[in-house]
Nucleic acid binder design. Structure first.
Lengths: 185, 185
DNA sequence: AACTTGTTTTACCATTTGGTACAGACTTAT
DNA sequence: ATAAGTCTGTACCAAATGGTAAAACAAGTT
């Protein structure tokens, strides 16, 4: 019982893509079954508590990726410019040219918020705090660093929405590039 | 046939509130019926093409409000500082302390995007262009004005998401205040 | 009073929703 | 070979989904 036909971890990328594209309510079990090629039986084998557990798993995996690719560099001792650059590169990759919103942001947007309130709060809080600390290292005062970090994260999230509305991924890349330049003063 | 028992226009605020809270897929006809106190029959009397038409009507009304309260002041000849202040006040009121996202932004976030692509595109495009023109009047160069306007709108949309995630309306008010100060340099 | 118009109620429809039960199949260890 | 575990397919379920049809109701006009 080492090799398994399908593993829970294999499903997470597909699940993430679905939830990030259609939202929580907009993603049906039928769509999940179709996209993964698995029947509901298999799905409920991996996620006995159903759809909420699937969404939770996506948030968990996103949080793990985020800790690795964004919080890690931000907290790693080193030049602020490098940390900020790594953050920006990770965001560009994760959001795929602004076409795909972050699962956390999407769940925060609608009433799904009430289901996942705690993870949402900590996710963005950690992000803002880690970035603010980097900005302090870069010379900002404590208060200014916090508001600048907040505005930076907000700008990223908003840029994804605008890129999706414009159906033009370039605007997201541009926003990230400007953000990087602004933060690295 | 002058006085009607219920008017289409009376329903729009309720509809807007529902869609902005739960998203398009997350808002069921049953919930709409319950919130408005009307049966499905009445609902389909006012919106014969069903839920899509209701969402479209909400977007139309939002667009009308936006043209009046935001684009109007931005396009009105006068000091940039006044136009920007009026925009910020209107946004604060409309988003209710960052607790309610904009219908346009919410529909842009998930795959509802494909249903309302055109209105979404024009909404944000008009906003950015009008704000950019004000920034030119305030002394910016044409290119810088456009990117600053884009970032400003993005920052607003993102701040709503962060305010909802933090469940703290004050952060939205703070973001708007900082934005106003930044734009009025 | 009758006619017309606009609104609401009620009952109904097919389809889809999230979820379950369970028998069978595959894989691995003994 | 067999037992034990893990995985999958099928069939099923009650409830909710978006949507429809038409009868009944209210009100204004003639």
């Amino acid at each position: 019982m080492v090799k398994q036909v399908a593993e829970r971890a294999d499903l997470l990328p597909k699940l993430a893509q679905l939830f990030r594209s259609h939202g929580y309510e907009g993603t049906s079990l039928a769509a999940i079954a179709a996209a993964t090629g698995l029947g509901k039986g298999s799905l409920y084998h991996f996620f006995p508590r159903g759809k909420p557990e699937m969404a939770q798993a996506v948030l968990d995996e996103t949080a793990a990726w985020f800790a690795r690719a964004v919080l890690g560099p931000l907290r790693h001792p080193g030049p602020p410019r490098v940390a900020i650059r790594e953050m920006c590169r990770a965001l560009e990759a994760h959001h795929n040219g602004g076409t795909q919103i972050c699962a956390f942001a999407l769940f925060a947007a609608d009433e799904t918020q009430t289901l996942f309130a705690a993870p949402l709060r900590t996710h963005f809080q950690q992000w803002i705090e880690a970035l603010a600390r980097v900005l302090v290292l870069a010379g900002r005062g404590a208060a200014a660093a916090r508001t600048e970090a907040f505005d930076a994260v907000a700008c990223i999230q908003g840029a994804i929405i605008l890129a999706r509305a414009a159906e033009d991924g370039r605007v997201f890349a541009g926003a990230v590039a400007r953000l990087e330049a602004r933060l690295c003063v």
